Simulated assay, not measured.
Amino acid sequence: MGLFDFIFGTQKRLVEDYLKNGALILDVRTQREWDAGHIEDSIHIPLNELNEGVEEIKKLNKPVITCCASGVRSAKAAKFLNLNNIEAINGGGWVNLKKKL
């Protein structure tokens, strides 16, 4: 097993564990990006609106897997959610995340 297999295999198992625990998928891309395609049953809150939506996410009382186009914005979103006492991980780019589902 190579380093990349180890890293990405671990990420896949983490996503699977979160999903087993009822995690929701939060897409933080722009409306235009969301409209072009997204993961079915995911929630859409653009990163620049996440501050206003954090209480709504807390009320759902579920772990969160964030996603965006490449993983940069979703990493920021996961960190923000963690700082607000919401269990969250970065799922990376939505297309790759969809393949893991």
Rank of each mutant, 00 (worst) to 15 (best):
G2I: 11
L3E: 13
L3V: 15
F4V: 12
D5M: 12
D5E: 14
D5F: 12
F6P: 01
F6N: 14
I7K: 09
F8V: 03
T10H: 10
Q11S: 08
R13I: 07
V15Q: 03
E16M: 10
D17I: 13
D17L: 15
Y18R: 03
Y18L: 06
L19D: 07
L19M: 14
K20T: 09
N21F: 00
N21D: 12
N21P: 04
N21C: 06
L24C: 08
L26M: 08
L26R: 01
V28S: 03
T30N: 10
T30M: 02
Q31G: 10
R32F: 12
W34K: 06
W34R: 08
W34F: 15
D35F: 02
D35N: 15
D35L: 14
A36K: 11
A36E: 13
A36W: 03
G37H: 11
H38A: 10
H38I: 06
H38G: 08
H38R: 11
E40N: 15
D41I: 07
D41A: 13
S42A: 14
S42T: 04
S42N: 05
I43F: 08
H44T: 05
H44W: 06
N48S: 10
N48I: 10
E49V: 06
L50K: 05
N51R: 11
N51V: 06
E52Q: 13
E52N: 13
E52G: 00
G53V: 00
G53S: 10
V54S: 06
V54I: 14
V54L: 06
V54F: 04
E55L: 11
E55Y: 09
E56V: 03
K58H: 09
K59H: 11
K59Q: 15
L60Q: 15
N61E: 11
N61M: 05
P63N: 14
P63K: 11
V64A: 04
I65T: 04
T66K: 00
C67D: 02
C67V: 10
C67G: 01
C68I: 04
C68Q: 00
C68G: 01
C68Y: 00
A69L: 07
S70R: 10
S70M: 12
G71Q: 08
G71Y: 03
G71E: 02
G71H: 03
V72W: 05
V72H: 06
V72P: 00
R73L: 07
R73E: 06
R73A: 05
R73Q: 12
S74G: 12
A75F: 04
K76H: 10
A78P: 00
K79L: 14
K79W: 07
F80V: 02
N82H: 04
N82S: 09
L83E: 12
N84M: 13
I86K: 00
I86F: 02
I86Q: 00
E87T: 14
A88W: 00
A88Y: 00
I89V: 14
I89E: 01
N90A: 05
N90D: 07
N90S: 05
N90V: 01
G91K: 00
G93L: 06
G93V: 08
G93F: 04
W94L: 07
V95L: 13
V95T: 13
V95I: 15
N96P: 05
N96F: 06
N96T: 08
K98D: 15
K98N: 15
K98A: 15
K99I: 09
K100C: 13
L101W: 03
